[in-house]
Design a protein around this nucleic acid. Structure first.
Length: 378
DNA sequence: AATGCGGGGAT
DNA sequence: ATCCCAGCATT
């Protein structure tokens, strides 16, 4: 595999040249391919971590409209950045990006550094993002190995190492680095990813339209579809939760009670409807279960937040699947205890007016629930 | 090396 | 229902 015989070197040149020529003719017209601004390219690469192109495109435009340059993002309130990221997921990406951009603003005078040691040291910039931004923005000959690239390389060179393992990525990076044609780092890295995204797909790869099919060992040996080898992740754990939809009265009529999540951990700093984790035994009658859950919800919110509510009736169920947790939510309409209302709310609680949705960033699952009860952002 | 961290589209 | 996506940070 790593013997640099003349045959192997020739195959590598064939691979790189074939990919470059194909990319030049077939590349998609993507927004971040119409700019040479390193900051814009950087934003696109962070958004594209674990996220599909079609999902990213609208976020990319909105984000850069709000924060068009390093200066703008560096000076923005974190809440606005989080709101601009709302729905994209992995919210630490947004926080890390802003932190990194602030460092670029202060330490590098607003110019995205073009040296690997400098750029890689920034928050949220790992091996992939460093290689992608440096090669695409500055044509620095660094590899950019993501899931697409590992799939393409594992098939073409018939590499059977488990791509879920750390050392495999290092091995792929070494190979990818050696494949980069002189002066073509940006185009070559994008060509590799583009092939993985559009031709060398996880299932049913389109081998017959592949520019390098003639020497693809995976295809020639009939094993393209079984590559790459990857250990499968364990299923998410289930968490049952009871959610309180609390409508205000008097001065708070028409508003809903929301709370902010802790600054660390899952969905950090985002807003949500108050809820608690509950036991949900299987096989219990729905009515009895709902009664038990309403009682637990009242007691739970009193205990955890000191907020006293009176659950009245079941409203809807909702489900949300993270990569590691599966939330099964039951939403209950509640009244706030009038004696409590006079006492005042805990500091992380707010009354939400339907007209000020733009001030609070919610995880998608709560946006869906709010839409269901008639509160949507315009 | 293993785990935490969102959300959605393709099959 | 399953896979996996232009991954990174923390432990």
């Amino acid at each position: 595999m790593h013997d640099n015989t003349m045959q192997e070197l020739e195959t590598r040149r064939y691979f790189a040249a074939g990919l470059l020529e194909w990319y030049d003719r077939n590349k998609r017209d993507l927004p971040w391919r119409r700019t040479s601004d390193p900051y814009h390219i950087w934003v696109s690469e962070v958004m594209l971590q674990q996220t599909r192109v079609d999902t990213v495109i609208p976020y990319y435009f909105r984000f850069l409209e709000k924060f068009p340059d390093v200066e703008a993002l560096a000076h923005a309130p974190e809440e606005e950045v989080l709101k601009a990221w709302e729905g994209l997921g992995y919210y630490s990406r947004a926080r890390n990006l802003q932190s990194a951009v602030r460092e670029v603003h202060e330490r590098y005078g607003g110019t995205v550094p073009d040296r690997k040691e400098d750029f890689s040291s920034l928050k949220g910039v790992g091996p992939y993002t460093a290689g992608a931004v440096l090669s695409i923005a500055y044509n620095v000959p660094e590899p950019a190995v993501d899931g697409n690239v590992m799939r393409v390389l594992s098939r073409f060179f018939l590499i059977e190492d488990d791509i879920a393992k750390g050392p495999t990525r290092v091995k792929m990076e070494k190979l990818a680095r050696e494949l980069i044609p002189e002066g073509e780092a940006g185009s070559f890295n994008q060509a590799l990813m583009e092939l993985g995204a559009t031709v060398c797909t996880p299932r049913s790869p389109h081998c017959l339209t592949c520019p390098v099919m003639e020497r693809c060992r995976g295809r020639l040996e009939g094993r393209a579809e079984e590559l790459p080898v990857k250990t499968k992740a364990k299923p998410p754990r289930i968490e049952a939760r009871a959610v309180a939809l609390i409508e205000g009265s008097g001065p708070h009529a028409g508003k809903l009670l929301i709370r902010r999540r802790p600054r660390q951990g899952l969905l950090a700093n985002m807003w949500e409807l108050p809820h608690i984790e509950i036991e949900r035994p299987a096989g219990k009658a729905a009515a009895a279960q709902q009664g038990a859950e309403m009682e637990a919800l009242g007691a739970g919110l009193a205990e955890t937040d000191g907020v006293t509510v009176l659950p009245e009736r079941w409203l809807m169920d909702a489900e949300h699947i993270f990569s590691h947790i599966r939330w099964e939510l039951a939403v209950y309409r509640c009244r706030l205890d009038p004696r409590f209302e006079a006492a005042g709310l805990p500091p992380h609680y707010r009354w939400l007016d339907a007209g000020e949705m733009e001030r609070y960033a919610f995880p998608n699952v709560f946006l869906r629930i709010l839409a269901e009860v008639g509160i949507e952002q315009t």
